[in-house]
């Protein structure tokens, strides 16, 4: 068995008194594609955001290539995370957000170049070449000079994916990448994500698109009440769920299917 590229041990996250993630153990191997499903408020976005430290875990560890991030601080498993270390982690673990979070004062090309210039310290020409390549890949070769405000939601999300790809991350996190899109724009984003899957990239995807999760994922996790309720292959979890809770959740999705 391969050494996991990312491993999470006893991960807890509390917002004040609210215990969102309750001692999660989890690992991802190279090339795995994990879809995380669950009701709203189940903690699935929070879980994903702990992996690149958009949220700081309350306790527990996240390891990349066997190396634990941060240093122990305090006796309850709390850790201290220096900014420089987190920046290195985030360079390797990219994230695509529900709200795109593009930089509105920069053109599409500048958006895709920004991380290369500031984080990787690349020369302008090299950064431009790389950014152009990634924008081509997501089908936005003709939008280099447009500002994000002029683009459709689907186009904006594809720019965000290109921006993240340009950093050449080892793992890509997608936090409900299609949830804020009009239904007719969802497809163009999913097509791009599928293409990345075909390249064998390691990805984690929080989504409500169960059909896509079924075809996309090598592993599906059903998260409820801050724990992994059910984990398995897409067929196991989505077609033949063992847990009553998973079944109830899936039924709500198929209730109005035709």
């Amino acid at each position: 068995m391969n050494e996991p590229i990312l491993r999470v041990t006893e991960l807890n996250k509390k917002f004040g008194e609210h215990h969102v993630l309750k001692g999660i153990d989890f690992s991802v191997e190279q090339g795995e594609r994990v879809a995380i499903i669950g009701g709203s408020g189940s903690g699935k976005s929070t879980f994903l955001r702990c992996l690149n430290f958009m949220e700081m875990p309350s306790s527990g560890t996240v390891s990349l290539d066997g190396k634990e991030i941060g240093k122990p601080a305090g006796k309850n498993g709390e850790r201290r995370y220096p900014e420089s270390e987190l920046c290195l982690v985030r360079e390797r673990v990219g994230m695509v957000f529900q709200q795109f979070n593009l930089f509105p004062h920069m053109t599409v090309l500048e958006n895709a170049m920004e991380g290369l210039l500031t984080v990787k310290g690349m020369k302008k020409e090299a950064a431009r070449d790389l950014a152009v390549k990634e924008l081509d890949k997501v089908g936005l070769a003709d939008k280099h000079d447009a500002y994000p405000g002029r683009l459709s939601g689907g186009q904006q999300q594809r720019v965000a994916i290109a921006r993240s790809l340009a950093m050449e991350p080892e793992i890509l996190l997608f936090d409900e990448p299609t949830s804020s899109l009009d239904p007719e724009l969802v497809g163009e984003v999913l097509v791009v994500i599928r293409k990345l899957a075909e390249e064998g990239r390691t990805m984690l995807l929080v989504t409500h698109e169960l059909g896509f999760a079924y075809h996309f994922a090598t592993k599906v996790i059903f998260l409820a009440d801050g724990v992994f309720h059910e984990v398995g292959t897409p067929a196991e979890v989505l077609k033949n769920p063992k847990q009553e809770r998973t079944r109830a959740f899936l039924n709500r999705f198929t209730e109005f299917a035709f």
Binding site: N52, M54, E83, S84, C87, L88, R90, E91, G94, M95, F97, Q99, F100, N101, L102, F103, E114, G115, T118, V119, A160, R163, S164, M167
Partner: peptide, 19 residues
């Protein structure tokens, strides 16, 4: 979200503020 978008790329707070 602007902070988060930049942070997710690996940018430092001082870079995010400035750029």
């Amino acid at each position: 979200g602007q902070w988060e978008g930049a942070r997710a790329l690996g940018m430092r707070n001082s870079q995010i503020l400035r750029r």
